[in-house]
Computed example of a mutant assay.
Amino acid sequence: MGLIERIGVDVGRRLRLEDAIAWAAANGVRYIDIQLDTGANAVTSFDDARCRAIRAALEKHGIHLGLHTLSAVNVAEYSPFLSEAVDAYMKAYIDAAPRLGAASIVVHAGYHFTADAEMRMQAGLDRLKRMAAYAEAKGTLLLLENLNKEPAEAEVHYLAHTIEEWRYYYEAIDSPALALSFTANHAHLLPEGVEGFVAAIPMHRVVEVRLADCFRLGHEQHLVPGQGDFDFGAMFRLIEGTGFKGHYMNAFGTLEDMQEARARLAALARAAGVAA
Protein backbone atom coordinates (compact mmCIF):
# COMPACT_ATOMS: atom_id res chain seq x y z
CA MET A 1 0.00 0.00 0.00
CA GLY A 2 1.42 3.39 -1.00
CA LEU A 3 1.69 6.29 1.41
CA ILE A 4 -1.22 8.21 -0.10
CA GLU A 5 -3.46 5.20 0.56
CA ARG A 6 -2.37 5.25 4.21
CA ILE A 7 -3.41 8.90 4.65
CA GLY A 8 -7.01 9.07 5.80
CA VAL A 9 -9.63 11.72 6.48
CA ASP A 10 -11.25 12.52 9.81
CA VAL A 11 -14.88 12.95 8.81
CA GLY A 12 -15.88 13.77 12.37
CA ARG A 13 -19.49 15.01 12.37
CA ARG A 14 -19.51 16.23 8.77
CA LEU A 15 -21.45 13.37 7.15
CA ARG A 16 -23.84 10.57 8.03
CA LEU A 17 -21.69 7.45 8.36
CA GLU A 18 -23.21 5.76 5.31
CA ASP A 19 -22.55 8.91 3.26
CA ALA A 20 -19.01 9.11 4.63
CA ILE A 21 -18.30 5.59 3.40
CA ALA A 22 -19.71 6.42 -0.03
CA TRP A 23 -17.65 9.65 -0.15
CA ALA A 24 -14.49 7.80 0.86
CA ALA A 25 -15.06 5.10 -1.77
CA ALA A 26 -15.63 7.71 -4.49
CA ASN A 27 -12.45 9.56 -3.53
CA GLY A 28 -10.13 6.60 -3.01
CA VAL A 29 -9.84 7.19 0.76
CA ARG A 30 -9.05 3.99 2.64
CA TYR A 31 -9.15 5.31 6.24
CA ILE A 32 -11.85 7.44 7.86
CA ASP A 33 -12.64 8.48 11.42
CA ILE A 34 -16.15 9.30 12.62
CA GLN A 35 -17.67 10.67 15.81
CA LEU A 36 -20.78 9.10 17.34
CA ASP A 37 -22.02 11.93 19.56
CA THR A 38 -24.66 13.88 17.64
CA GLY A 39 -27.17 13.90 14.83
CA ALA A 40 -27.55 10.98 12.43
CA ASN A 41 -24.42 9.30 13.85
CA ALA A 42 -25.38 9.41 17.54
CA VAL A 43 -24.30 6.13 19.09
CA THR A 44 -27.91 5.44 20.09
CA SER A 45 -29.12 5.62 16.46
CA PHE A 46 -27.62 2.37 15.13
CA ASP A 47 -29.93 -0.63 15.05
CA ASP A 48 -28.85 -4.08 13.87
CA ALA A 49 -30.01 -3.58 10.28
CA ARG A 50 -28.13 -0.31 9.93
CA CYS A 51 -24.99 -1.84 11.42
CA ARG A 52 -25.13 -4.79 9.02
CA ALA A 53 -25.39 -2.45 6.04
CA ILE A 54 -22.46 -0.34 7.28
CA ARG A 55 -20.24 -3.38 7.80
CA ALA A 56 -21.11 -4.62 4.32
CA ALA A 57 -20.28 -1.24 2.76
CA LEU A 58 -16.94 -1.06 4.58
CA GLU A 59 -16.03 -4.55 3.40
CA LYS A 60 -17.17 -3.90 -0.17
CA HIS A 61 -15.03 -0.79 -0.51
CA GLY A 62 -12.09 -1.90 1.63
CA ILE A 63 -12.40 1.04 4.02
CA HIS A 64 -10.93 1.10 7.53
CA LEU A 65 -13.29 2.80 9.99
CA GLY A 66 -12.09 4.38 13.21
CA LEU A 67 -14.22 5.97 15.91
CA HIS A 68 -13.17 9.12 17.77
CA THR A 69 -14.59 10.01 21.16
CA LEU A 70 -15.24 13.61 22.14
CA SER A 71 -12.40 15.26 24.07
CA ALA A 72 -14.97 17.42 25.87
CA VAL A 73 -16.11 14.33 27.79
CA ASN A 74 -13.82 14.30 30.81
CA VAL A 75 -12.24 10.86 31.14
CA ALA A 76 -10.68 12.18 34.37
CA GLU A 77 -14.10 12.77 35.94
CA TYR A 78 -14.44 11.67 39.58
CA SER A 79 -17.73 13.23 40.71
CA PRO A 80 -20.61 10.87 41.58
CA PHE A 81 -23.19 10.36 38.81
CA LEU A 82 -20.96 12.11 36.26
CA SER A 83 -18.28 9.49 36.77
CA GLU A 84 -20.71 6.68 36.05
CA ALA A 85 -21.95 8.57 32.98
CA VAL A 86 -18.43 8.77 31.55
CA ASP A 87 -18.02 5.01 31.99
CA ALA A 88 -21.32 4.45 30.20
CA TYR A 89 -20.29 6.81 27.39
CA MET A 90 -17.02 5.03 26.76
CA LYS A 91 -18.61 1.58 26.98
CA ALA A 92 -21.19 2.67 24.40
CA TYR A 93 -18.38 3.47 21.95
CA ILE A 94 -16.65 0.17 22.72
CA ASP A 95 -19.90 -1.74 22.21
CA ALA A 96 -20.52 0.10 18.94
CA ALA A 97 -17.12 -0.63 17.41
CA PRO A 98 -17.61 -4.33 16.57
CA ARG A 99 -21.23 -3.73 15.57
CA LEU A 100 -20.11 -1.12 13.03
CA GLY A 101 -16.98 -2.92 11.91
CA ALA A 102 -14.73 -0.22 13.35
CA ALA A 103 -11.11 -1.23 13.93
CA SER A 104 -10.22 1.23 16.69
CA ILE A 105 -11.44 4.03 18.96
CA VAL A 106 -9.43 7.17 19.76
CA VAL A 107 -9.76 8.02 23.46
CA HIS A 108 -8.34 10.72 25.71
CA ALA A 109 -7.05 11.12 29.26
CA GLY A 110 -9.38 14.00 30.16
CA TYR A 111 -8.54 17.35 31.70
CA HIS A 112 -7.87 18.95 35.07
CA PHE A 113 -8.52 22.28 36.72
CA THR A 114 -4.96 23.00 37.90
CA ALA A 115 -5.49 22.44 41.65
CA ASP A 116 -6.84 18.91 41.20
CA ALA A 117 -4.37 17.55 38.62
CA GLU A 118 -3.22 14.59 40.71
CA MET A 119 -6.75 13.46 41.55
CA ARG A 120 -7.82 13.82 37.93
CA MET A 121 -4.85 11.84 36.63
CA GLN A 122 -5.55 8.97 39.02
CA ALA A 123 -9.24 8.96 38.13
CA GLY A 124 -8.41 8.95 34.43
CA LEU A 125 -5.88 6.17 34.77
CA ASP A 126 -8.31 4.03 36.73
CA ARG A 127 -11.00 4.59 34.10
CA LEU A 128 -8.70 3.84 31.17
CA LYS A 129 -7.65 0.59 32.87
CA ARG A 130 -11.32 -0.39 33.21
CA MET A 131 -12.06 0.56 29.62
CA ALA A 132 -9.02 -1.29 28.27
CA ALA A 133 -10.20 -4.45 30.04
CA TYR A 134 -13.70 -3.92 28.65
CA ALA A 135 -12.35 -3.31 25.14
CA GLU A 136 -10.21 -6.43 25.37
CA ALA A 137 -13.29 -8.49 26.20
CA LYS A 138 -15.14 -6.94 23.27
CA GLY A 139 -12.26 -7.48 20.83
CA THR A 140 -11.66 -3.85 19.98
CA LEU A 141 -8.70 -1.47 20.25
CA LEU A 142 -8.40 1.85 22.10
CA LEU A 143 -5.94 4.47 20.84
CA LEU A 144 -4.88 6.94 23.54
CA GLU A 145 -4.19 10.33 21.94
CA ASN A 146 -1.72 12.99 23.09
CA LEU A 147 -3.78 16.15 23.33
CA ASN A 148 -2.82 19.80 22.94
CA LYS A 149 -1.33 22.22 25.42
CA GLU A 150 -3.41 25.08 26.75
CA PRO A 151 -2.08 28.54 27.68
CA ALA A 152 -0.08 28.47 30.91
CA GLU A 153 -2.48 30.92 32.56
CA ALA A 154 -5.56 28.82 31.75
CA GLU A 155 -7.29 27.05 34.63
CA VAL A 156 -8.27 24.02 32.52
CA HIS A 157 -5.57 21.84 30.92
CA TYR A 158 -5.78 18.67 28.85
CA LEU A 159 -4.00 15.67 30.31
CA ALA A 160 -1.53 13.52 28.37
CA HIS A 161 -0.33 16.50 26.35
CA THR A 162 3.31 16.19 27.46
CA ILE A 163 5.58 13.18 27.00
CA GLU A 164 5.63 12.61 30.76
CA GLU A 165 1.86 12.77 31.19
CA TRP A 166 1.17 10.55 28.19
CA ARG A 167 3.70 8.01 29.50
CA TYR A 168 1.96 8.02 32.91
CA TYR A 169 -1.03 6.30 31.30
CA TYR A 170 0.33 4.00 28.62
CA GLU A 171 3.13 2.58 30.78
CA ALA A 172 0.62 1.69 33.49
CA ILE A 173 -1.81 -0.07 31.15
CA ASP A 174 -0.29 -3.27 29.82
CA SER A 175 -3.14 -4.42 27.62
CA PRO A 176 -3.32 -5.52 23.98
CA ALA A 177 -6.47 -3.37 23.80
CA LEU A 178 -4.58 -0.09 24.38
CA ALA A 179 -2.34 1.43 21.73
CA LEU A 180 -1.51 5.04 20.79
CA SER A 181 -2.69 7.75 18.42
CA PHE A 182 0.12 10.28 17.96
CA THR A 183 -1.06 13.77 17.01
CA ALA A 184 2.09 15.20 15.47
CA ASN A 185 0.87 18.80 15.37
CA HIS A 186 0.26 18.71 19.14
CA ALA A 187 3.91 17.71 19.63
CA HIS A 188 4.93 20.68 17.43
CA LEU A 189 3.48 23.02 20.08
CA LEU A 190 5.87 21.76 22.77
CA PRO A 191 9.63 22.30 23.19
CA GLU A 192 10.47 18.65 22.46
CA GLY A 193 8.76 18.85 19.09
CA VAL A 194 7.97 15.86 16.91
CA GLU A 195 11.58 14.67 17.09
CA GLY A 196 11.54 14.58 20.88
CA PHE A 197 8.22 12.74 21.03
CA VAL A 198 9.26 10.13 18.46
CA ALA A 199 12.51 9.51 20.34
CA ALA A 200 10.70 9.09 23.66
CA ILE A 201 7.51 7.19 22.92
CA PRO A 202 7.12 3.47 22.07
CA MET A 203 6.54 3.81 18.33
CA HIS A 204 5.66 0.12 18.12
CA ARG A 205 2.47 0.99 20.02
CA VAL A 206 1.50 3.82 17.64
CA VAL A 207 -1.26 2.78 15.24
CA GLU A 208 -2.30 6.20 13.93
CA VAL A 209 -0.51 9.51 13.33
CA ARG A 210 -2.82 12.54 13.18
CA LEU A 211 -1.91 15.52 11.00
CA ALA A 212 -2.63 19.24 10.73
CA ASP A 213 -0.53 22.34 10.29
CA CYS A 214 0.21 24.81 13.08
CA PHE A 215 3.02 27.06 14.28
CA ARG A 216 6.04 25.96 16.32
CA LEU A 217 5.46 26.54 20.05
CA GLY A 218 2.18 28.24 19.16
CA HIS A 219 -1.36 27.46 20.20
CA GLU A 220 -3.85 24.81 19.12
CA GLN A 221 -4.79 25.18 15.45
CA HIS A 222 -5.80 22.70 12.79
CA LEU A 223 -4.58 24.48 9.68
CA VAL A 224 -4.43 23.20 6.12
CA PRO A 225 -0.85 22.11 5.28
CA GLY A 226 1.08 25.12 4.09
CA GLN A 227 -0.72 27.60 6.34
CA GLY A 228 1.64 27.01 9.29
CA ASP A 229 5.31 26.07 9.66
CA PHE A 230 5.04 22.31 10.28
CA ASP A 231 7.63 20.41 8.21
CA PHE A 232 5.60 17.50 6.88
CA GLY A 233 8.42 16.11 4.76
CA ALA A 234 10.76 15.86 7.75
CA MET A 235 7.95 14.35 9.84
CA PHE A 236 7.27 11.60 7.28
CA ARG A 237 10.99 10.86 6.94
CA LEU A 238 11.36 10.58 10.71
CA ILE A 239 8.27 8.48 11.38
CA GLU A 240 8.60 6.19 8.37
CA GLY A 241 12.24 5.73 9.36
CA THR A 242 11.12 4.08 12.60
CA GLY A 243 9.44 1.32 10.61
CA PHE A 244 5.94 2.71 11.21
CA LYS A 245 3.38 0.79 9.13
CA GLY A 246 0.18 2.32 10.47
CA HIS A 247 -2.01 5.03 8.96
CA TYR A 248 -2.09 8.82 9.03
CA MET A 249 -5.23 10.86 9.61
CA ASN A 250 -5.82 14.34 8.21
CA ALA A 251 -7.76 16.52 10.67
CA PHE A 252 -8.19 20.06 9.36
CA GLY A 253 -10.41 22.24 7.20
CA THR A 254 -13.12 20.77 5.00
CA LEU A 255 -13.46 17.29 3.55
CA GLU A 256 -12.19 18.70 0.27
CA ASP A 257 -9.18 20.30 2.01
CA MET A 258 -8.26 16.99 3.62
CA GLN A 259 -8.77 14.98 0.43
CA GLU A 260 -6.76 17.42 -1.71
CA ALA A 261 -3.93 17.47 0.82
CA ARG A 262 -3.40 13.70 0.67
CA ALA A 263 -1.55 13.90 -2.67
CA ARG A 264 0.40 16.99 -1.59
CA LEU A 265 1.52 15.31 1.63
CA ALA A 266 2.63 12.20 -0.24
CA ALA A 267 4.60 14.45 -2.61
CA LEU A 268 6.27 16.21 0.33
CA ALA A 269 7.24 12.81 1.72
CA ARG A 270 8.77 11.76 -1.62
CA ALA A 271 10.70 15.04 -1.83
CA ALA A 272 12.08 14.28 1.65
CA GLY A 273 13.36 10.92 0.48
CA VAL A 274 10.53 8.69 1.63
CA ALA A 275 9.54 5.84 -0.68
CA ALA A 276 5.93 6.89 -1.04
Rank of each mutant, 00 (worst) to 15 (best):
G110T: 01
A133E: 12
E164V: 04
E165M: 13
I173D: 07
P98H: 01
M131V: 01
F182D: 04
A85G: 07
F182N: 04
Y111M: 11
H108E: 04
F81A: 09
E155F: 15
A154H: 14
M121G: 08
H108S: 04
I94V: 01
A184K: 00
R120E: 05
P80T: 05
S104V: 10
R130G: 10
A103Y: 13
Y89L: 02
L82G: 11
I94N: 00
A117D: 08
D87A: 13
A132I: 05
A137S: 13
L142A: 09
A179K: 14
L159T: 14
G139Y: 14
M90E: 02
R120A: 15
I163Y: 15
D116Y: 06
Q122T: 05
E84N: 09
T162V: 08
T183D: 15
W166T: 04
E155L: 14
K129T: 14
Y158A: 07
P98F: 06
L159K: 05
N146I: 04
A117F: 06
L141T: 11
Y93H: 03
I105N: 02
A179F: 15
E118N: 14
H108A: 03
Y168K: 03
H108K: 01
E145K: 13
Y89K: 00
L100C: 11
A179H: 13
A160Q: 00
F113Q: 02
M119Q: 14
Y170G: 11
T140L: 08
M131D: 02
S181A: 15
S175I: 12
R127L: 03
I105G: 04
A103D: 13
E155A: 15
G110S: 02
T162G: 05
A85P: 06
L159F: 10
Y158H: 12
E164N: 09
A137G: 14
R120H: 08
L125P: 02
Y169W: 13
P176Y: 07
E118F: 13
A154F: 15
A97Q: 01
I163K: 10
E145Q: 12
R167P: 08
A102H: 10
S83I: 08
G139C: 13
R167V: 03
L82E: 06
E118M: 03
W166E: 04
A115R: 10
E136R: 08
E145V: 09
T162K: 03
A177H: 03
R167W: 11
F81N: 11
N148Y: 14
A133R: 13
G110Q: 04
L159M: 14
A92H: 05
R130A: 11
A117G: 11
N148S: 06
R127C: 00
D174H: 08
T183N: 12
L125T: 05
D87P: 03
Y111C: 04
P98Q: 10
L100T: 05
L125F: 00
L128F: 02
A102W: 08
T114R: 09
L159D: 08
S83F: 13
G101T: 06
V156L: 12
T183G: 08
A132D: 03
N148W: 13
A172I: 12
K149N: 10
A88N: 00
L100M: 04
L142G: 09
T114K: 09
A109E: 08
I173Y: 03
